[in-house]
Design a protein around this nucleic acid. Sequence first.
DNA 1: CTGAAAGCGCTTACAG
DNA 2: CTGAAAGCGCTTACAG
Lengths: 346, 346
Amino acid sequence: MSSAVLQERSRPATITLHDVASEAGVSVATASRAIRGDAVGAATRARVLATAKRLGYAPNRLAQSLRAQQSMFVGVIVPDIGHGLFARTVAAAQDVFDRAGYQVLLMNTRRSPEQDGVALRAMLSTNVDGLVFASYGGITASPPVPTIFFDTVVPGAGDANVAFSNREGIELLVGHLADRSGAHGYNRIAYIGSPLPLTSAVERIEGFLEAMRARALPVRDDYMVMGDELWSPESGTAAMNRLLALDEPPHAVVAASDTFALGAIQAIVQAGLRVPEDVAIVSFDDTYFGGFMEPQLTALKAIHGTVGRTIASLLLQTFEHGRSGESLQIRVPAELIVRHSCGCHG
Amino acid sequence: MSSAVLQERSRPATITLHDVASEAGVSVATASRAIRGDAVGAATRARVLATAKRLGYAPNRLAQSLRAQQSMFVGVIVPDIGHGLFARTVAAAQDVFDRAGYQVLLMNTRRSPEQDGVALRAMLSTNVDGLVFASYGGITASPPVPTIFFDTVVPGAGDANVAFSNREGIELLVGHLADRSGAHGYNRIAYIGSPLPLTSAVERIEGFLEAMRARALPVRDDYMVMGDELWSPESGTAAMNRLLALDEPPHAVVAASDTFALGAIQAIVQAGLRVPEDVAIVSFDDTYFGGFMEPQLTALKAIHGTVGRTIASLLLQTFEHGRSGESLQIRVPAELIVRHSCGCHG
DNA sequence: CTGAAAGCGCTTACAG
DNA sequence: CTGAAAGCGCTTACAG
């Protein structure tokens, strides 16, 4: 089988506007107008549309983009699309973009700040109309196209920054654990956090410190332990083990993520202790199986769908109204889901 | 502030090849050759490259695509990018495509067979060079561009079909539970499966039936229960409750997914019974927290990364060698991870 | 080695 | 209402 034959088979001749125009006996200009719904004679329109349908014509979006100087592409850049948090956010955003006629270009930075810039340049080369960007710390300036940053805040940059209410969320968690007016009244509370220099990590640590100080609760250095940069469950286990080895282990732990919580619970169980009887656990992130764990996890409500829809809508709005030159700061409010790992419901 | 000003701000003038050519005092043809590394005088090349760098020139990929009749776009179509299984597969595939210079276009079919066709047409309109496609049942014929189907097999279609070894995987699970030569020797084994008419659901059911028959174990109708089409944990709980309500409840359960397993375990615990002492559970899918559950989950090894890399590599290979006209059938082998939910390690 | 020209597939003023 | 022409930003035969 010759290479030419293979070639032919692999790329069947594509129907172009020129094809339908000549078949319908009109100019390409008229064919274009008929198909796009511009002013054209009723009979002509019908004929063109019928021909287009018969030939199976589909406009070449690349040519349209080049000509219209509007690509209808939107770039999505995330540190790791394999991570549930980003996967669910992107799914929701993709949905909104899809319905608005935008195609989503996806790039993964593999948790590398350097890749932030590489991905950005690639997206600009593809003439994306805008970006939705979860930076991993490699971006400080505003990109030349409309951009909504999320997850990690890039202060003053982009057209909007959308992030969780990290401080408020931690305050809710600490409040539930510590306040006597509430359910529990723990005072030996530890924190398992992430050492990353990103908003989501830093603000949660600060939030914990503030929440403890506001209640005049002691913040012991050895009660502040860190997992690894991947937020891995294994590192959560290690962190909890350090806590359990203390002379005075904590009675309650705030985990900065579901993965840390999972790891911490394992450490407690393996030490022959029980959650929440011996150590209570609450988590910043909830998971789809939070209600299926033993014990069920007390955590903040998962709102990745909301975040995804919000960032997509904000970008579309920017397209519509133009860039204001200012960077909107948006925080998605936190909400506590009380289940059992905190000690509630016995 | 006038709209013209906004316009200007939102779209800074882009540097084109024409700009660098005139700045460097050469024709666009020469500038193009210099930048692409085609034959060009050494001095000229240096000058063009320097100018391009100084001006911050980046080629317009859309124009390149249109001219070269090769888009360097690859389409990824999945039922739900928000689902961990697809998220991790796509992450690995994206990685391979990225390194090969391809941009990934992502579409979600939201678990709708109709959307399979819609997504396919959108991808073709964007002139993707090829596709990696987890159909939801809406595709039966080969698309006109190189395509690797995965997860759900589309018999005879595309250039390759990559799927889990569903039957073999279930055989491993049933074998571990049933064989006396192995650890356990259960004979009252039930199955919680998915009612979907897709490969992953159907083949697992068939595999279970075969594995049971091969051991001359009884397959009772009331031991075959189905969760919902979303593979939700809740439906796993409901299915397990039906099993527990039987006169003779099973001693072991094979769950077709991690989510069903999770739901089933919850049902057992809420009934005041224990896993694995009263009912053993094994799962087809493992999860990232399988080793962090109580009890730890016995399941098949998660190999989404392998699948993702495989499908991406196969597509790149098809690009290189042309389409053969045949559809390669590939099954990714299953491997059992023995933990505690089956009754092992006490 | 280099330039002028054609063309990828469209859209959109500009005429008529 | 319709057509001829220009042009989006490139690449690549075709000449010289």
